[in-house]
Amino acid sequence: MVQEPERHGDEEPPGEAPPRAVVLATFDSLAPRTAEGVAGELDVARDHAAATLSALVDAGELESAALVDGDDALTAYYLSPDVHPGGSIDPETARRAAVQRTIAELDVPGVSEMMQDWRRDALERAWEFLAEEGTVSDRAFKREVYPGHKAGYDTAEAWWAFLRPRLARLPGVEGPSDDGSTWEYVGP
């Protein structure tokens, strides 16, 4: 018998586990969190949040403890003070998680989830390129990012038509400039 995943609320939860950086960013102190609490904050299924939390424990990014009261058991997840001195994650991890969360919420065209994921990956790579360079022209995005992240587009122009309006909505991005072709990364 196949058991259905647990649901929170009356809504159908999204069908995939959230990225590890996004889940890790929900921990802003050494205070413990539960899979249910993380799932509610990220609006994902509890089982998907639990899977990502377990992967973070396996990677040594989080620690966990089973809390038992009679027949009731609960797993608490928390930042390791050894891995995260001061009880918080580094700003770069938090910034990347904010970008990934924003990208995940954007409407992305595609006939399949895989195509949509490729397009989200291309958008994230464009953001990374801008964050690394500081100032980037439309032409540089097409020359440097498009060849490795075509996302199913046959031409750089079609790819840029998809990417351009979405890039402007990401955290830390300012652009395009008055000339219409220069973008700037201004930080968090």
Rank of each mutant, 00 (worst) to 15 (best):
V136Q: 05
D154T: 06
A158F: 04
R120V: 00
R119G: 01
E157N: 12
V145R: 00
A158W: 04
A131Y: 08
A140V: 07
R125L: 03
D154C: 03
S137W: 03
D154F: 04
K150L: 02
A158L: 09
A158T: 06
A140F: 04
K150C: 07
T135K: 10
Q116C: 06
K142G: 01
T135S: 15
S137V: 09
G148N: 12
E124G: 12
K142R: 15
V145A: 02
R143S: 12
E132V: 05
V136C: 15
D117G: 10
R119E: 00
A156D: 15
T155I: 12
L123P: 08
G152W: 05
E124C: 06
L130S: 07
R125P: 03
W159K: 11
P147I: 12
R139H: 13
L130T: 03
A122P: 08
K142H: 10
A126Q: 12
F141A: 13
D117N: 11
A151V: 05
T135W: 07
D138C: 07
A131Q: 14
H149N: 15
A126F: 04
T135A: 13
S137T: 13
R120F: 00
A158D: 13
P147V: 11
W127D: 00
A126G: 08
R125V: 01
A158Q: 15
A126I: 07
R120G: 00
W159P: 14
W118Y: 06
E132Y: 03
E128V: 04
E124L: 15
K150Q: 15
W118K: 01
R139C: 05
Y146H: 08
W118E: 10
R120S: 00
E132K: 07
R125S: 10
E133C: 07
D121F: 07
E128G: 02
E157K: 06
D154P: 01
A156N: 14
H149W: 12
R120D: 00
E124R: 06
D121Q: 12
W118F: 10
R125F: 06
E144D: 11
D154M: 13
F129Y: 14
Q116K: 09
R143I: 09
Y146E: 07
S137E: 09
V136P: 11
A131N: 13
E128N: 10
W159N: 09
Q116F: 01
K150E: 14
G134V: 06
D138Y: 04
Q116L: 05
A158H: 14
R143Q: 15
K142C: 04
L130V: 07
K142D: 04
H149V: 05
D121L: 10
E133D: 03
P147D: 13
E132Q: 14
T135C: 10
R120L: 02
Y153L: 04
A140G: 03
E124I: 02
A140H: 05
P147H: 11
G148Y: 11
V145G: 00
E128F: 00
R143W: 05
E133K: 01
A126V: 10
G152F: 07
D138L: 10
A140K: 02
D121A: 11
G152E: 08
W127G: 03
W127I: 01
W159I: 09
D121R: 12
E128S: 12
R139N: 09
E133W: 03
E132I: 03
G134A: 14
T155E: 14
K150T: 15
E144W: 06
K150I: 05
